[in-house]
């Protein structure tokens, strides 16, 4: 299957999308490390070209991701994620126009049991909250999980 990658256009509205999904990454030795490396590498490659920013949070069993950027680029990546066999039970929580981006770059954060003070922001708890709280929670995670995050370059003019 060939995906035609959209090119960001100047007058495209800035869009915000948040989804939550169950991680289907296997538990065998090396599997998690390899799949996360794949996600990081493709994010490094694509997000710059698509001028996307946001954060991807993983807490052992669930993913939650905030994507912000031109509408067609956000929806293009969401379509890729829907077809990605690493995710199941995908639920879109926020899909709306944004005046400004909540996050200026892209990061990935791993929330573990050691981050007790952030446990109320784990994907399985956050996804039951209203949109504003979800967004606030993801921004907090991206800022406070600096040890675990992998910042990428902000998009040009983002």
């Amino acid at each position: 299957m060939t995906h035609l990658r959209p090119v960001p256009v100047a007058d495209s509205p800035t869009w915000r999308l948040v989804y939550a999904s169950t991680s289907l990454i296997e538990a065998g030795p090396g599997a998690f490390r390899a799949e996360i490396a794949d996600i990081l590498a493709s994010s490094a490659r694509n997000n710059r070209l698509l001028t996307l920013t946001g954060v991807l949070v993983h807490n052992g069993s669930r993913f939650m991701q905030l994507l912000e950027g031109p509408r067609e680029c956000v929806h293009f990546v969401m379509d890729l994620i829907r077809a990605d066999t690493r995710h199941e039970r995908i639920g879109v929580l926020i899909d709306e126009r944004a005046e400004v981006r909540a996050l200026p770059d892209w990061a990935m954060a791993f929330l573990t049991s050691r981050d007790k003070e952030l446990s109320h922001l784990s994907p399985d708890r956050l996804e039951t909250k209203p949109s504003a709280e979800i967004l606030e929670g993801l921004v907090t995670l991206s800022e406070r999980c600096s040890e675990m995050s992998v910042p990428l370059e902000p998009p040009p003019g983002g």
Binding site: S23, F110, V150, P151
Partner: peptide, 23 residues
Amino acid sequence: DLFSALESEAFGRAEAEHAAARA
């Protein structure tokens, strides 16, 4: 930087917790 993150202690914890969750 991506490489470093994959070898970090935090990543090791995340990997162990993922395995526990999938078990």
